[in-house]
Design a protein around this nucleic acid. Structure first.
Length: 511
RNA sequence: GCCGCGUUGGUCAAGGGGUUAAGACGCAUCCCUUUCACGGAUGAAUCACGGGUUCGAUUCCCGUACGCGGUACCA
């Protein structure tokens, strides 16, 4: 009997969830579901100074919006909780102490000032960031450098201290990564990372290992920025639980800025005017809002789809996947090794494709919401149906439905007269007066009959129908582009169409 | 600096010892459309560079360059 697959997404509640985070969650989710396993959400809130109110709720809601709901989480609970590290504080100390007892870790009493002193003392051009490691620890205040009596005295006096891992002198740590293969580290180049902070909270390094063990995690997936500290985690597994119980690792490539260098950050959002977060995030400290994909008019399916293929593909030409398709097709070993630059144009293309995939009916609630956000009340949903089916192919973002469709519900506020004024004349005015009369008693109100009546009068008056279509469009829409005019008139209905034609003719603006 | 991970068109990428080096986004042109879009068609890369190995390398090996990440009592 195989062990049940269990994976976790473990964000820090320090702000909005950005693209990379959602993708990490997505890949974890897909892997779990594909193997009939569990997807766990664990909140890594061990840094109390970085606590941001609302961030955890934001994470919950973002995952929900994306359809990536965890099987176990702080909100939902579960057998191996609590799922918030701040609530597990008492657990970690025991493991840290165990490491000290076995000689794999030690107490260090250095203050932040002392650490800074050490760093500036050893800092050179060749070594810009001196580490607390096998070379320097002898000069610091810790169990290894102090006498037994000195440490006893410090401990008895409740001196603030941390617990640091004692990095072995010369050992090779092998890490088997599902994406990158074997990665090798030399421990003599690594530093003595803090495991337990002075406030009693664990650092990430201790917490992941202990929690992954306690929560029976079988596969640990995270962003590539964690690769350099992976050997610390391997060592901790070896010391605490044995490497045979260690989860399999995979480090996902980073998502890079659309332009320039570096990984995508929330600052790019305002700078480039593109969403970075799943949903709008209002920073409680600054009051500033960073825009999200949801509010930018993305369908969650499109957002997830776009994210999935940013760094992964199944080897075929397929690009459009539902979440179910992804559960079926996703595979870790086809995840790219190199970072991928985020491309907003392509993201919009995905949304467009998904809008086309949705049925008109399914689009109604989204469109209705967009209209309402623009203070346009829609009396009944049914009136939206013909509008949506007419304009859906020209919409990439949900907001486009408002831009492309608002004139169906509200007469143009202004007309683009420059487009027609130069060619306007009394003859054309006469044409429209006559057309209105015909429209008033046209037997069948549909695009085809509206068009044939239009052409018949045009022929009769010897005017090119093409020259009359633009004026008609301006009358109905106000602008010179949009869906076919007669289709528009068909939806607008007799009374409204006549009213709009008359409105411009009688306005005197074309004289 | 040191350590780790990368490097196929502007971007996402398939491929992998012998190919006309897929496809998508974007761009350009054309067709469709008496509007604008949608849609359709066409066009643009010798695979970072230098050495090997080989009959033959974009594909394997080694260097170099470049990019990214890490180097916190942050995750």
């Amino acid at each position: 009997m195989e062990k049940k697959i269990r994976v976790r997404f473990a964000p820090s509640p320090t702000g909005g969830l950005h693209l990379g985070g959602v993708r990490t969650a997505l890949y974890n989710f897909l892997f779990a579901k594909q193997h009939g396993g569990d997807f766990i959400l664990r909140i890594e809130d061990t840094d109390q100074s970085r606590y941001v109110p609302g961030a955890e709720e934001y994470i919950n809601e973002s995952l929900k919006w994306c359809g990536l709901e965890p099987d176990e989480s702080p909100l939902k609970g579960g057998p191996l909780g609590p799922y918030r590290q701040s609530e597990r504080k008492s657990i970690y100390r025991e493991y840290a102490d165990q490491l000290v007892k076995s000689g794999k870790a030690y107490y260090a009493f250095d203050s932040p000032e002392e650490l800074e002193t050490m760093r500036s003392k050893y800092r050179t051009a060749d070594n810009p960031s001196p580490q607390y490691d096998r070379r320097t620890r002898e000069h610091m205040r810790n169990t290894l450098s102090l006498t037994f009596e000195e440490t006893e005295r410090l401990m008895a006096g409740n001196t603030a201290h941390v617990i640091r891992i004692k990095m072995p002198d010369k050992e090779i740590v092998y890490l088997q990564d599902m994406i990158r293969g074997e990665v090798i580290f030399d421990t003599s180049l690594l530093d003595d990372k803090v495991l337990l902070k002075a406030d009693g909270m664990p650092t990430y390094h201790l917490a992941v290992v202990v929690d992954d063990y306690l929560m029976k995690i079988t596969h640990a997936f995270r962003g590539e920025e964690w690769l350099p500290s992976a050997p610390v985690h391997v060592l901790l597994w070896r010391y605490l639980f044995g490497e045979d119980l260690m989860p399999e690792w995979a480090h996902f490539p980073l998502i890079l800025k659309p332009d320039g260098n570096g990984k995508l950050s929330k600052r790019d959002s305002a700078r480039l005017g593109i969403p970075i977060f799943a949903m709008d995030w209002k920073d409680p400290a600054t009051g500033q809002t960073i825009t999200g994909f949801r509010e930018s008019g993305f369908l969650p399916q499109a957002f997830v789809n776009m994210l999935a293929v940013l760094g992964w593909n199944d080897g075929t030409e397929q690009e459009l996947y539902s979440l179910d398709d992804l559960v079926d097709k996703f595979s870790i070993d086809r995840v790219h090794k190199a970072g991928a630059r985020f491309n907003y144009e392509k993201a919009k293309w995905f949304n467009h494709e998904w809008i086309k995939r949705f049925s008109t009916h399914a689009l109604v609630p989204f469109v209705k919401k967009v209209f309402e956000e623009n203070n346009l009340r829609v009396a009944n949903d049914a009136s939206l149906i013909p509008v949506i089916s007419l304009i859906r192919d020209r919409c990439s973002l949900l907001g486009d439905f408002y831009i492309q469709g608002k004139f169906f519900f509200t007469a143009p506020q202004q007309w683009d007269l420059n487009a027609i004024r130069s060619k306007w004349n009394g003859q054309k005015a006469d044409f429209f007066k006559e057309y209105i009369e015909i429209l008033d008693k046209i037997p069948e109100w549909n695009a085809a009959s509206l068009e044939s009546a239009f052409k018949a009068i045009a022929a009769e008056k010897n005017i090119k129908a093409g020259e009359l279509q633009l004026p008609l469009r301006i009358m109905l829409v106000g602008e010179k582009s949009g869906p076919p005019v007669f289709e528009i008139a068909a939806i607008l209905g007799s009374a409204e169409t006549i009213k709009r034609i008359r409105s411009l003719i009688n306005s005197g603006s074309l004289q």
